[in-house]
Amino acid sequence: MTAPAALRPPVPGVDVPDARGRTGLDRAGRDLTGNPDVRVRDVELLAAGWHVLRRTTLEVRRSDGSWQTQQRETYDRGNGATVLLYDPDRRTVLLARQFRYPVYVNGHPDGLLLETAAGLLDDDDPATAIRREAAEELGVVVGELQEVFQVWMSPGSVTERLHFFAAPYSPRTRAAQGGGLAEEGEDIEVCELAFDDALAGTTDGRVVDAKTVMLLQWAALSGPFAAARRD
């Protein structure tokens, strides 16, 4: 259990501001009341370099009525949004190819993934955030925007909820080069693929990013390319 504040030195992110000016990062979850079979007993801040890692002690009532004490570590990086940009006339999609160290260290041959444009919401609403990301990463000014679904991508440990969108694009709306923000370490290759080729990549190993697989399959099953595939 976490020691009382009076018995320990001030903790950045808890008692005093951390490098991002945050305090009270150990309060998340303490006031949850939506599930009467879950009682949060303690929250420890483990790390807060940029995103936040917490260890929570909770009591969970099992199906037989007994209470069990559990500990869960959660990684809080905020919520995000992603968008599939598609050209319905030319039957193409616009994807980003970029290096992802976590997949590289876990067996991907070079760490370069083909992905739909995506990013964290920060302080924006999902639609505003994904318009920003589409412009920064792929150079597209998004007009009409369709929200497809919302998904928790890794509910066993990561708190992030991802908002999925789709939007048409054309050569006319590709207003900039894209490539991401160099100051954030981004070096993105803009890739235009035939939709059928991108969809085939979800089964032959060329497209292995979860959000991208989901949006491509949605586009084939019930999205902009569904009717053409049925015909």
Score class of each variant (00 low, 15 high):
residue 112 L to Y: 14
residue 107 G to M: 05
residue 97 R to E: 01
residue 186 E to K: 14
residue 189 E to D: 08
residue 132 R to V: 12
residue 98 Q to S: 12
residue 192 E to K: 01
residue 89 D to G: 09
residue 210 A to S: 09
residue 158 V to D: 12
residue 95 L to K: 05
residue 106 N to T: 12
residue 89 D to T: 09
residue 104 Y to F: 13
residue 216 L to Y: 00
residue 97 R to P: 01
residue 225 F to P: 00
residue 61 R to N: 05
residue 36 P to L: 13
residue 183 E to V: 11
residue 87 D to Q: 03
residue 85 L to F: 03
residue 69 T to A: 15
residue 183 E to M: 09
residue 97 R to V: 05
residue 9 P to R: 15
residue 84 L to G: 01
residue 102 P to A: 15
residue 222 S to P: 00
residue 180 G to D: 04
residue 107 G to K: 06
residue 100 R to A: 15
residue 217 Q to E: 12
residue 230 R to K: 08
residue 73 E to F: 06
residue 32 L to Q: 08
residue 214 M to F: 05
residue 121 L to H: 08
residue 191 C to N: 02
residue 173 T to I: 06
residue 162 L to S: 06
residue 218 W to A: 02
residue 19 A to L: 06
residue 59 E to H: 03
residue 8 R to C: 13
residue 84 L to E: 02
residue 154 S to V: 14
residue 8 R to P: 09
residue 85 L to S: 01
residue 214 M to Q: 02
residue 123 D to Y: 09
residue 198 A to T: 00
residue 97 R to L: 01
residue 57 T to H: 06
residue 215 L to R: 00
residue 82 T to K: 02
residue 70 Q to I: 14
residue 17 P to F: 06
residue 9 P to Y: 08
residue 178 G to D: 09
residue 212 T to L: 00
residue 8 R to T: 15
residue 147 E to Q: 09
residue 185 G to T: 14
residue 211 K to V: 03
residue 118 A to S: 15
residue 52 V to M: 05
residue 13 G to N: 00
residue 166 A to L: 01
residue 56 T to I: 13
residue 86 Y to E: 04
residue 52 V to H: 03
residue 140 V to D: 07
residue 60 V to E: 10
residue 107 G to E: 00
residue 27 R to F: 08
residue 168 P to K: 01
residue 119 G to K: 07
residue 66 S to M: 09
residue 106 N to R: 15
residue 130 I to G: 11
residue 155 P to N: 13
residue 150 Q to M: 10
residue 77 R to Y: 05
residue 218 W to I: 03
residue 32 L to I: 12
residue 86 Y to G: 01
residue 1 M to R: 11
residue 80 G to R: 03
residue 212 T to I: 01
residue 117 A to C: 05
residue 69 T to M: 10
residue 229 R to H: 11
residue 92 T to Q: 14
residue 132 R to E: 07
